[in-house]
Amino acid sequence: MSEPLNLLIGLAMGLNLLALGSSRLLAVIRAMSVQGMVLGVMPLMIVGLSGWNVLFVAVMTVVIKGFFIPGLLRRAMRAARITREVEPIIDFVPSLLLGAGGTVAAVALARVLPLLPEHAGTLLVPGALASVLTGFVLLIGRAKAISQVCGYLILENGIYLFGLLLLEATPVLVEFGVLLDLTVGIFVTGIIMDRIQRAFDSLDTRKLTVLRE
């Protein structure tokens, strides 16, 4: 069972690098949306169609991470009339190198942590850590609010990957937490971006520098 799963996790890790190296905002959003759909399929591969709540998590994840949020972000892009593309604070090649280095570090770190036999063969932990690191690089290394939101979402995807380890043992409540967090978080972020747009007439967070010592 773990071979196709590992293939999907590897795909998600590849999409991380795509998001880091892409200079087009739409491409970043697309990478994130595909990653969301890939993540949505995973619960079914791990647990199988055993209960309605696993199915629920899978469907909700695909709908929210794969369609709803990317759609919201595209709408925000149109509303802000962004034609220029991703503006990096950390340039693309260094971003990619950081991402690749982070992936290697994630694999190394994951070897230190003990895993249950049923998880030992999977890439879940390295995949999760690599996504979290990618998210951080995007959060720190991009100037536009929408790119930062993408970074935050990739970080969340990493946490979701990790949560899959607990899918069988703990109540699904923890998973619901992630979904709730995402929807509401993005919703609020969307409002904020709207306000930033009106107040600063741009989505450039580098202009948010009045408050400092």
Partner: peptide, 26 residues
């Protein structure tokens, strides 16, 4: 405008903190 700046920073830094505490809980 200053309140918006404060809110954005709160959301970004606070949101990241929240995400990390979820990872820690897992």
């Amino acid at each position: 405008a200053r309140a918006i700046e404060a809110t954005w920073k709160f959301l970004l830094v606070g949101g990241t903190g929240i995400a990390l505490s979820l990872l820690g809980s897992f």
